[in-house]
Design a protein around this nucleic acid. Structure first.
Lengths: 154, 154
DNA sequence: GCTGATCGTCAGCTCTGCTGACGATCAGCA
DNA sequence: TGCTGATCGTCAGCAGAGCTGACGATCAGC
């Protein structure tokens, strides 16, 4: 995505009063803005936000199979294949067969992967901070908490 | 966090503590959940959330050209063509050439369009309420306000 | 040692939206 | 008036994300 958003045409947030209060519009455009900030912040690491999310899952807790990780991310196992392929190509993760169940691949972070994860997460956190900058610290905290409540409620 | 594994399909938003606190994940899954509720609520009208958004823009203020409306929605004029096509096919909007500038199409709601808009918006509002149900009314209001601040800040 | 289920993989599809090009039209300028 | 460049709507084609369905390899139960 080219971030050359200067002044002109599409992707202009437009200021329709009615539209701008709809949750769907708000969530979509909030996500879009955060996505741009995050993408820029992660660019030096050759990652995007989704790849970072995969790294986070793989780097937390014990080693997981591809399907385990996919489930945690809410994506499909066929999608996970491409993610692991990409991260493996970058030398950030490695596949090895599961000792007890050889149908499974255990995916683990490499040394480089662990280091990249640490630094990329830092950069991504900073991007979140910039995104939340228009809000006071307490309001930002409330926003995150409200979203957690909604997402984990179902 | 006590939801254990009782799923039967993929796309289960697993409960990775670290991941679940990231804004990107939260916004994505919040949007996803609202999208499902909204889609179900609008299904009786043969609309989806994006088409409703187009109707809202077209129904507010004076008649707009396709490009005007697209700009307000933050989408591209080539994308708008398909939206107007679909809505026109359903008899909800009509195109007519602009009187002063015949390069433009003025897109207006039909009588049916206005009626459908009113009822669909009501259904969509109800879906938003259901989505926000896990939050207290003041918290829900704060959430919406915080998102408005973020989205309109830039 | 069979049978059926599970995991990773791949091909192919859908959905959404964009880019690039085109004709029609407008505005400016001589 | 005629020419030139920009703008609007349209269409074809492309790209990214993710899914479905099928396949071989492997496992678990009988």
């Amino acid at each position: 995505m080219s971030s050359d958003v200067q002044d002109d045409q599409q992707t202009e947030p437009g200021t329709n009063l009615e539209l701008v209060e709809r949750l769907g519009y708000l969530l979509k455009h909030a996500q879009l803005q955060l996505f741009e900030l995050t993408t820029a912040a992660l660019e030096p690491f050759g990652l995007d936000g989704r790849q970072l999310a995969v790294l986070i899952v793989l780097g937390s807790g014990e080693p997981a199979s591809q399907q385990d990780a996919a489930q945690q991310l809410g994506i499909d196992r066929t999608t996970m294949v491409a993610f692991v392929d990409a991260l493996e190509r970058k030398g950030l993760v490695g596949r090895r067969p599961h000792a007890q169940d050889r149908r499974k691949n255990v995916v683990e972070l490499t040394e480089t992967g662990r280091d990249t994860l640490r630094r990329a997460r830092k950069a991504s956190d900073a991007a979140e901070q910039r995104f939340l900058a228009p809000l006071s610290a307490p309001l930002a905290r409330q926003l995150r908490q409200a979203l957690i409540t909604l997402v984990t409620a179902r």
